[in-house]
Design a protein around this nucleic acid. Sequence first.
RNA 1: GGAGAGAUGGCUGAGUGGUCGAAAGCAACGCUUUGCUAAAGCGUCGUAGCCCUUAAAGGCUACCGAGGGUUCGAAUCCCUCUCUCUCCGCCA
Length: 428
Amino acid sequence: MLDIRIIREQAETVRTRLRQRGGEEWTLVDEVLSLDEARRAGETEKQSLQSERNRVSKDIGIARKQGQDTAAIEAGMRAIGDRIDVLNHETADLDARQETLLLSIPNLPHEACPVGHSAEENPEVRVWGSKPAFAFEPKDHVTLGTDLKMLDFEAGVKISGSAFVVYRGAGARLERALINFLLDLHTTQHGYTEIAPPLLVKPEALFGTGNLPKFGDQLYHCEVDNLYLLPTAEVPVTNLHREEIVDPASLPICYAAYTPCFRREAGSAGLGTRGLIRMHQFDKVELVKICLPQDSMEELEKLTANAEKVLQLLGLHYRVIELCTGDIGFGSAKTYDIEVWAPGQGTFLEVSSCSNFGDYQSRRMKLRYKDPETRKNLYPHTLNGSGTALARLFVALVETYQQHDGSILLPPALVPYFGRSGIAALTP
RNA sequence: GGAGAGAUGGCUGAGUGGUCGAAAGCAACGCUUUGCUAAAGCGUCGUAGCCCUUAAAGGCUACCGAGGGUUCGAAUCCCUCUCUCUCCGCCA
């Protein structure tokens, strides 16, 4: 949520920045400003009347003790009370409308965020490794997974429908090995604290991270209990400190969490996505940071480097791109995407998205820290990034490390976790 | 699912219609004094909004789980809701 004071004082800058995103939200600025003005006018009148009421009510108390008749004064106060009631409802209504508008306005892109209209204008930041060469025609993960009996797409459909999959045998074991590898890397090498959060979350948590109110159609909702299946561990983990005033000495707070993620993917069904690339349920290890405002850009670089380390250790070719203003997410001020090469797809797949949200989420969830100098409560910055998504990592891994005989030879970093050096081809 | 208890400031915990934003204690911060890993004394110490200011300072208002009601006036009385805890039942 944007700071109303920034909108008030720098309306033109806010409009310009919002326009760079390409949406229509910039047109809401004028509406917010007029609501704000009306709200403050009502607030001022209401408060001066309340002040009068408090003063006179005290006098009435004193006069009554002295046995005086206060009926006339009380009648006058009743009129003031009525007026206060009216103003109360008016300002509450204006306040609610302003809040609703503010919740639907996306974050301002950071000035370091490249300006552009769409994904085509995302600059490539760096490339690591190179495309692996094959002396044979590489298969895609669907073929490999099915042949090796690691992935059962038909069973997924039978049990849960399209875009669900069953991992089995070596596939299930590989998924588990990857989860442990990722968590160990981030907790023992990168200093993150491991979190295992609930997978069902309240609406308040989703408002805090910005998934609600705008993106409810992407969420699985358990109506009888009004709980949502999480679309990413970002939601419960960032909300761990919702409505808290954290000790600034404890910053940066760094969390790593493995969870399954559930997404309805409304609107993208049948979008030509074969295999594991777009699923309703997938595993992910998420990294979350809460830090001082002045540190957040540096922390974003570290976070991105932590996610890249995964691909480096696994020997997977990848590139990092920077999202332009027209492509960054709703709450983000600056985002790097990491895309891994998948030989069977002949394309790069997004396996991580690392974002600095500035104070956008912390203001929404009333997450603050007390500045030791001024003793004021300030909003820390929040960041998160996948470290990394598992399904697409699985794709890149098996497609990159497939052998001519259909077997898979795992990179050394994964061998201790998997327990074997690879997955042998099955003999028919 | 059944029964009961509760929700007050960072924490503990007083407060049942009027100078209560709220006693007291703990924690924290500052100062003083003494001094071997500390104690004592004094002071400060909730959150948010509005107004006035270049700013600081200041003034005002609201907030004692949430919402509504009674009243000139509500932490305090009434109603509704939510949540937490305990016990019983069921269950991985």
